[in-house]
């Protein structure tokens, strides 16, 4: 079968459907995932087909239902827990960080937690400062968790299945600005879920990014090509564990790196990746590592301010030009 074209939302839904078909232990649980069809309509239609035993609407109690999901995973089920957005996930952070991430270790390896927690993230819909953040770094900080960021339609389709086959807790971030976008979905996963992928080959500078910023980096690479700067684009895909080899090999070739991250710069993922390059790839660098991140402000409501806060392709182009010119 050839690749098909789906929206990112449809790709996510197809992934959930496949998981429900493949394994009867799998169920979807979260706020308004059933009768309402999902806050972002990802699970629309699934309740009618699979029923309330497998598509479970929960009350508004993030800590409660995420904790139930963790317990159910310990009890032999394979829950997919949907938390509406990463912002609300802070209410469940106790269960994710103090239980899901620790139980295997604290029990000396006796209990693993095969739970998958999906959550929406990212800005761009004028939802202001309590619905727009990118806190992948919070979870990527935690030993015991795995963190995925599908930036392509194929990853949106297949990463859930990969995550469910993993015996440990996996968090999947789904960027809200991708949901309506159409793209090609291949029949099989492009790679193991923990591998980074080079999305575009180039020679002069490596753009390292993930999730909702991937297409911005690819746009920037197109624009850079017009001015004879050849940019390579690395899609991290998995934020914990990080596939450091892929981006270090790329930087070893291009000798320059820019990290594009919708999180804030301070104490963020971009800083971590930059540090890894300094530690392991310093001698291959011809220029300082640069970061394009979200401005240090809670995401504002007006569109022009929101866009001004977020990483943009133009900024990436400008920064690439600057480091190529030794500025």
């Amino acid at each position: 079968m050839n690749a098909q074209t789906l929206t990112y939302r449809e790709a996510l839904r197809a992934g959930i459907e496949q998981a429900l078909e493949d394994d009867e232990r799998v169920f979807l649980m979260g706020e308004d995932v059933g009768r309402y069809g999902g806050c972002y309509a990802v699970s629309k239609g699934l309740f009618d087909y699979y029923g309330e035993q497998r598509i479970i609407d929960t009350p508004l109690c993030e800590s409660g239902f995420v904790g139930v999901g963790i317990g159910a995973a310990m009890g032999g089920l394979r829950p997919i827990i949907e938390v509406m957005t990463v912002n609300f996930s802070l209410l469940a952070m106790d269960q994710i960080v103090n239980s899901a991430a620790t139980l295997r270790h604290m029990s000396g390896g006796q209990f693993n937690i095969p739970v998958v927690i999906r959550m929406a993230c990212g800005a761009g819909r004028q939802l202001a400062a309590q619905h727009s953040h990118s806190w992948e770094n919070f979870y990527a900080h935690i030993p015991g968790l795995k963190v995925l960021s599908p930036g392509t339609h194929t990853d949106a389709r297949h990463m859930l299945g990969q995550a469910l086959r993993d015996p440990d807790p996996v968090i999947i971030f789904e960027h809200v600005m991708l949901l309506n976008e159409s793209g090609e979905v291949s029949e099989a996963p492009e790679a193991d879920m923990e591998s980074a992928l080079v999305r575009r080959l180039g020679d002069d500078v490596t753009l390292i990014t993930y999730g909702g910023s991937l297409h911005k980096a690819l746009d920037a690479a197109d624009k850079l090509a017009e001015i004879n700067i050849s940019a390579e684009v690395v899609d991290l895909r998995c934020l914990r564990p990080l596939d450091t080899d892929t981006f270090l090999s790329s930087v070893a070739k291009t000798h320059r790196a820019i990290i594009i991250d919708e999180g804030w710069k301070t104490c963020g993922l971009a800083g971590e990746i930059s540090a890894i390059i300094m530690e392991q790839g310093f001698w291959s660098l011809d220029a300082p590592v640069k970061r394009v991140c979200t401005a240090e402000v809670p995401i504002p409501y007006p569109s022009h301010l929101e866009q001004a806060a977020l990483p943009q392709a133009e900024q990436i182009v400008e920064m690439a030009q600057a480091i190529m010119e030794g500025r």
Partner: peptide, 14 residues
């Protein structure tokens, strides 16, 4: 407490 509820859910479903 939520973990216990989850274990019970797994018992019930299985």
């Amino acid at each position: 407490l939520p973990l216990a509820a989850g274990l019970a859910m797994a018992n019930k479903k299985q």
